[in-house]
């Protein structure tokens, strides 16, 4: 009886062992676009950038730079990125190794421009504060929809209002105007 030593691989399919770390794959249904993976990634294979014209955040995963360290998987708060067991990645074109996930951004409730938070991030922020008292929740949910600038203006005006000697009823009405005049 003859026994074959050689793996018949390219002619017959084979699978990687269960502990194998293959290419990472982002689950577009779960990713919230927080960029924790991009911060954790040692070779910067994952990059996150905001496209303010189109109102999307692009999470770009370049597998040709990935070193399979699984730091992204450790860092992900939404359990969206996972290392798969896929290994047949050889390609003549490097662009084939890129995965891009686009997540819509939130529009600022005051000035109407796109903010630096995604819709899912805001939904998540609202979801994890369900245990807080109603008044505090309302106060907080007023801030999550704002862009950085409007948030600062709003916080400053709230502090201003809370101090009785400075209090003027007209302050609240000028929030939008201050923002508009400076930009």
């Amino acid at each position: 009886m003859t026994s074959y030593v050689t793996l018949p691989y390219p002619f017959e399919p084979t699978e990687a062992p269960p502990e194998y770390r293959g290419r990472p794959i982002i689950d577009p249904e779960r990713c919230i676009g927080c960029g924790a993976c991009a911060r954790a990634c040692p070779p910067d294979a994952i990059t996150v950038e905001d496209d303010l014209q189109r109102g999307v955040r692009r999470v770009k995963l370049d597998v040709s730079r990935c070193i399979r360290c699984a730091f992204c998987e450790e860092a992900c708060p939404a359990m969206a990125i996972k290392l798969s067991r896929e290994f047949e990645l050889a390609t003549p074109n490097k662009e084939d190794l890129i995965q891009i996930v686009e997540i819509p951004l939130v529009k600022c409730a005051v000035c109407g421009r796109y903010t630096n938070a995604t819709v899912r991030q805001v939904a998540k922020a609202n979801a994890i504060t369900t245990h807080l008292p109603q008044a505090l929740r309302e106060e907080m949910s007023g801030y999550v929809n704002l862009c950085d600038r409007c948030r600062r203006v709003r916080a400053a005006s709230r502090i201003y209002e809370s101090i009785p000697i400075f209090h003027k009823p007209s302050t609240k009405a000028t929030v939008g105007e201050v923002h508009g005049s400076k930009t």
Binding site: P10, F11, I26, P28, E29, R30, C31, I32, G33, V56, V63, A78, M79, E88, L89, A90, T91, P92, E95, D96, L97, I98, Q99, I100, V101, E102, I103, P104, V119, R120, A123, K124, A127
Partner: peptide, 21 residues
């Protein structure tokens, strides 16, 4: 020339709904 490539570039546009456990 025995096999063809299996990967290609993917651009996925996510929906606004959040899926959590």
């Amino acid at each position: 020339g025995l096999v063809n490539k299996k990967v290609k570039q993917v651009v996925q546009r996510a929906s606004p709904e959040l899926k959590t456990e």
